[in-house]
């Protein structure tokens, strides 16, 4: 069973729709820590403000996810769901992330290499330097395009599975063992995105 966590951040419809399209029928959309603990896989969608992730802690979901991850349950965070895997975000400094990956998410700079940089970063950009051992990005080619919409991003580290260049390189996919995240929206990234979701579903 796949648990899709509902923490009232943006719209879950498109993620659920994409999973259904991939023939995932054993799925619950939930706010229950018990259901998260029972799940074979966990998806944390998200779009919007980092502040919204405060609800995860308040509902006891942060601890449930921590426990599930520790016992090896595959976890996929999308957009703000990826950012939540880090220690936090300057978007909502008082709200703690899971801290599974070190460092903070920060806003795109207003100026990069002497030119104004628009923010949010909206549109189709490419995945680069895809780590060959990434299970999430298996079969996805370097240079493949995916859809982004965000103003904060995670820094590049050893756990980065792919980078994207906008105002410098940032982490567009992160993966260590069973814990994975994507800054882009796989549910809105046509064939490439469906491939990523299928990879996760088939883990």
């Amino acid at each position: 069973m796949i648990a899709v966590i509902d923490y009232k951040a943006g719209n879950l419809t498109s993620v659920v729709k994409a999973l259904k399209f991939l023939d995932v029928h054993d799925m619950v959309v939930t706010q229950s820590p018990e259901e998260v603990l029972r799940a074979e896989k966990i998806v944390l969608p998200g779009v919007g403000h980092f502040q919204a992730t405060q609800l995860l802690k308040d509902l006891g979901l942060t601890e449930a996810v921590r426990e599930s991850i520790a016992k090896g349950t595959p976890f996929l965070g999308i957009c703000v769901g990826l950012q939540w895997l880090y220690e936090g975000s300057t978007e909502a400094p008082e709200t703690e992330g899971l801290g599974h990956f070190a460092s903070q998410c920060e806003r795109f700079p207003a100026v990069y290499q002497g030119a104004d940089l628009k923010s949010p970063h909206v549109g189709w950009n490419s995945l680069e330097q895809i780590r060959p051992d990434s299970r999430l990005l298996r079969g996805v080619a370097n240079g493949a395009f995916v859809y982004f919409t965000h103003s904060w991003r995670a820094p590049v580290s050893a756990d980065t599975a792919a980078v994207t260049n906008y105002g410098g390189a940032f982490t567009s996919a992160v993966e260590r063992g069973n814990v994975m995240g994507v800054q882009f929206h796989p549910e809105k990234s046509a064939e490439v995105g469906l491939r990523v979701l299928r990879n996760f579903v088939e883990l």
């Binding site: 498109s14 729709k17 994409a18 859809y147 919409t149 929206h185 549910e187 809105k188 064939e191 469906l194």
Partner: peptide, 8 residues
């Protein structure tokens, strides 16, 4: 329209 549309 949205049911099987996987672009924004």
């Amino acid at each position: 329209a949205a049911a099987k549309l996987f672009v924004p």
